[in-house]
Design a protein around this nucleic acid. Structure first.
Length: 606
RNA sequence: GGGGGCGUAGCUCAAUUGGUUAGAGCAUCGGAUUGUCGAUCCGAAGGUUGCGGGUUCGAUCCCCGUCGCCCUCGCCA
């Protein structure tokens, strides 16, 4: 071991001692007689001074360039007064080089980790090892380590066992599209990579493990987003003999500890709970951002009395009219309103009605194309119902309930962002509970499980499972932070007859259920305790804790939006012999050897 | 699969209405410089304007195609 101390951790107490530092040249300044080198490692930076009287060591110091790797030994001294650098933690000391070894001369880096200039993301991803030397990235990985460590400690203190579950798993084509892995030993058969360890953790409860946790990798072959990767990490939990509030209390405690120890923020002992129904009615989404108001108001009754046909027809045909009041929105231009309308149409609305309060129409009046259809008395009712005043803007959607929720929910978020209504420094946690257990698939008309088919219905709603399945609520819960879903879970079904009723409701025949979930159904027969759990999205959680804009900023080696790894060039073609071993043939593409990896086509010739 | 944005030197960006030899900062290379810390000064080198085609006397600029990255809808808890 060459190193005595990390660059960022040398302290004044070590002044006068001979110490050895190892690291990368973060910057160099040659003043002819004296050369300064900033040496960087994962902890920070320490200034090295090379002086002419050291001969060869000085000459080596002069030759150092950015990102060279060196080991330097020398005396740590206090800097001269006035020569200190308050911008780095070690700015009051410096190392006078007495010996130095150049471990590896570096080629000029594609970009400099110490530069303040932003670098385009594809370049960063291609040279990720350089990118990870940048302070924000190093800090993100260190922070991530602290989060997982704390989670493991917390779970350990609460009696959880960390148990690994298989990555090579059985295909269960419910939910997201799966990644498949061909089996060499069973020609023609495939494993799937798990979307989550859901069924294994339930089986572990049947096995009597009582409390299971895992920092689990999950795989989903779906479109990517700034908050979605094809492989991502969850804190996966499952507990036996618990009910909803037990899981919620445990996770609340974990989150409070994370915020307290890693962010020095004290969160309330209990996070607000909100039913799914209330979330939709007030915010239009099942993961409300409660950092600002502008809530949805149902004005169907009033709207039906107006002379505006769109409103009357919507209500008459079983739909509704919902509004949001945009504070100060009266100043929006016609162009901006047109853009909002276009946005509304993108989310499924046929149109967007708007009313300006006061302004050109005069104090206490309403303006805009539909104002004339609303009598003064009804105008007053709308003002009261929406809480809007002169200078504000009312946006209205008249449609089916689901469309009105969606459109106004999305517009609310967009306007909240652009108008700067959100308090960026607040942490609004929220448990959303009482989700509907089932919904109707728009395309097929079939009843489908909203969460997954092993979610237990609320005991009170069980009697109406067959008569009115869409009214059945589930023992499911989501944890929402500032409008982002960071976790979700449920109490599971532990009785086989209830599971059978659910399968039958979902149109899954006993034979089909047997084929897909035999092991789980077996397990439920052989002594299943009541159990439930939750999974927290690690990547999103850490992204939010650090205030980053994308989960790629908290993942060491993320993939691009097209699922490629720019550093390793995965995925890539494989040798014909490999395919033959797996009894696979690639069809529908140019013959092997002509097929060029998509991302390689634009590569420049060397 | 649909919509949008971007692509110029190793990196970050300029380049008038389509007009002469495509510029700057940082990095790199050479030189100067004994207290800097985003060092400074002098000099040099560095370009198939992602790729292919088209329009034009002339294309970084306009058009078509294609590849890549990002955002977004669908999709996905």
């Amino acid at each position: 071991m060459k190193r005595d101390v990390y660059c960022g951790q040398v302290i004044k107490e070590q002044v006068g001692r001979q110490i050895t530092l190892c690291g990368w040249v973060a910057s160099w300044r040659d003043h002819g007689g004296v050369v300064f080198v900033d040496l960087r490692d994962r902890t920070g930076i320490c200034q090295i001074v090379f002086k002419p009287e050291t001969g060869k060591v000085y000459e080596l110091g002069r030759s150092l360039r950015n990102e060279d790797v060196v080991v330097v030994t020398g005396e740590l001294i206090l800097r001269q007064p006035g020569a200190t650098n308050p911008r780095i933690s070690t700015g009051e000391v410096e190392l006078i080089a007495a010996q130095a070894t150049l471990c590896n001369k570096a080629d000029p880096a594609p970009f400099l980790p110490s530069s303040h200039e932003p670098v385009s993301e594809d370049v960063r991803l291609k040279y990720r090892y350089v990118d990870l030397r940048r302070r924000p990235m190093t800090e993100a990985l260190i922070f991530r380590h602290r989060v997982t460590k704390l989670m493991r400690d917390y779970c350990d203190e609460h009696g959880f066992l960390e148990i690994e579950t298989p990555i090579l798993y059985k295909s269960t084509p419910e939910g997201a599209r799966e990644f498949l892995v061909p089996s060499r030993l069973s020609p023609g058969d495939f494993y799937a990579l798990p979307q989550s360890p859901q069924l294994f953790k339930q089986v572990l409860m049947v096995a009597g493990m009582d409390r299971y946790m895992q920092i689990a990798r999950c795989f989903r072959d779906e479109a990517l987003r700034s908050d979605r990767q094809p492989e991502f990490t969850q804190l996966d939990l499952e507990m036996s003999f618990v009910d909803r509030e037990d899981v919620i209390a445990l996770v609340t405690g974990l989150i409070r500890r994370l915020w307290s120890e890693l962010l020095q923020v004290q969160l309330p002992e209990r996070f607000p709970h909100m039913s799914w129904q209330e979330a939709m009615d007030r915010f239009g989404v099942d993961k409300p951002d409660t950092r600002f108001g502008m809530e949805l108001k149902d004005v169907s009754e009033t709207a039906a009395q107006t002379d505006f046909a769109v409103f009357k027809d919507a209500v008459a045909s079983g739909g509704c009219v919902k509004m949001i009041a945009v504070p100060g929105g009266g100043t929006l231009s016609r162009k901006q309103l047109d853009e909002l309308t276009a946005e509304a149409k993108q989310f499924g609305a046929r149109g967007l009605a708007w009313i300006k309060l006061g302004g050109d129409a005069g104090a206490g009046n309403m303006g805009g194309p539909i104002a004339k259809f609303i009598s003064p008395a009804l105008q007053q009712t709308l003002r009261t119902a929406t809480g809007a005043a002169d200078g504000d803007l009312l946006l209205a959607v008249a449609d089916k309930r689901e469309i009105a929720w969606r459109v106004l929910g999305e517009l609310r978020l967009k306007l909240g962002r652009t108008l700067g209504l959100m308090n960026e420094s607040s942490w609004n946690f929220l448990w959303v509970i009482d989700f509907p257990g089932f919904e109707r698939d728009e395309a097929t008309g079939k009843i489908i499980a909203r969460h997954h088919p092993f979610t237990s219905p609320l005991d009170d709603d069980l009697p109406q499972l067959e008569s009115d399945p869409l009214s059945v609520r589930a023992k499911a819960y989501d944890l929402v932070l500032n409008g982002v879903e960071i976790g979700g879970g449920s109490i599971r079904i532990h009785r086989r007859e209830v599971q059978s009723r659910i399968f039958s409701l979902l149109g899954i025949s006993p034979e089909e259920a047997e084929k897909k979930f035999a092991f789980l159904l077996d397990a439920l027969r052989f002594g299943a305790p009541p159990h439930g759990g939750i999974a927290l999205g690690m990547d999103r959680l850490i992204m939010l804790m650090l205030g980053r804009q994308s989960i790629r900023e908290v993942i060491a080696f993320p993939k691009t939006q097209s699922g490629t790894d720019l550093m390793t060039q995965a995925p890539s073609p494989v040798e014909p012999a490999q395919l033959a071993d797996l009894h696979l043939a690639v069809v529908g593409l140019p013959p092997h050897g002509q097929a060029v990896p998509k991302h390689a086509a634009a590569e420049k010739q060397p």
